[in-house]
Design a protein around this nucleic acid. Structure first.
Lengths: 153, 153
DNA sequence: TCTGAAACAACCTATAT
DNA sequence: ATATAGGTTGTTTCAGA
């Protein structure tokens, strides 16, 4: 089920990551190939799940989302039922941009994007009323220094 | 310079975030409008910077990037020159997917994606040799529970 | 696998409402 | 501000090498 990627595939992915609105002709030219092979490779990488989806990056501030928090969560509950409920709570909340289960002292990290501090508090209250957590630390982002450059190829 | 967004704009953005490969016709149909207005609105949102760019989301594992770390950094240096050098170090490193300056005890958080733990150590050693930092804590992700859903509209 | 070309679909502009 | 329509560009398929 693993697609093998050669240098040409990686060049194509690099271009797509940089600007997915380019035409096949443009991509073919910059990677030094022609339309059909580029198209076939893109199709295969889509089908093989290497390319998950095509999307747009939006300016959060323009949408009135001016606060970004990283939330560190410790829990005492580690049973399957609790995990399931926690997972569902995260999936249900669109403010949660990203969630990871961690190794070590801290059990989870979330990236949460909301309108303001009050909206974060509403999120926090809702979350802890749904699932029991031992300790929560919120780190407030003052400035995004880097983002959206895509994976290194 | 701020583009005002109405409900139709937001519906269009929701569709674009979900799947930017859709045709104008499809989008127009699902948001309950027709091609020309949808196209004009997209153009305005592009020009106004609401839509930053169009890209593809890739499967990191398929590219051999199997380790994801969140790195918490404390520093004692807070002068402008240090900040500048730190910023440049981050921008130069493609492993750094995201970087934020924080309020509070912890000064910075990074999201770093690399092939494995050894590659992370190489990154870490390179970083601390370039800029002086007081304290670094790395949180290793065991599992990505949520990502790439896009901003809430 | 790639090339080239033909068929098809979508984009973008202009014009009109 | 939205609809209709046509020229232009881009995508997809299919021969053949």
């Amino acid at each position: 089920m693993t697609v093998k990627l050669d240098q040409l595939d990686r060049k194509i992915l690099r271009e797509l990551q940089r600007d997915a609105s380019q035409s096949l002709d443009e991509i073919a030219r910059t990677v030094g190939s022609s339309k059909t092979p580029v198209w076939n490779r893109i199709r295969k990488m889509r089908e093989g799940g290497v390319i998950k989806r095509q999307t747009v990056l939006l300016e959060a501030e323009a949408l009135g989302l001016e606060a970004c928090f990283f939330v560190l969560i410790r829990t005492s509950e580690h049973d399957a039922a609790w995990q399931q409920r926690f997972l569902e709570a995260l999936r249900d909340r669109p403010e949660v941009q990203e969630a990871h289960r961690l190794a070590g002292e801290i059990d989870y990290i979330l990236k949460v994007v909301v309108a303001n501090a009050r909206a974060y508090d509403a999120f926090y209250q809702a979350l802890i009323s749904e699932v029991k957590v031992h300790n929560v630390t919120a780190l407030l982002s003052m400035e995004e220094l880097k983002s959206g450059e895509g994976l290194p190829l």
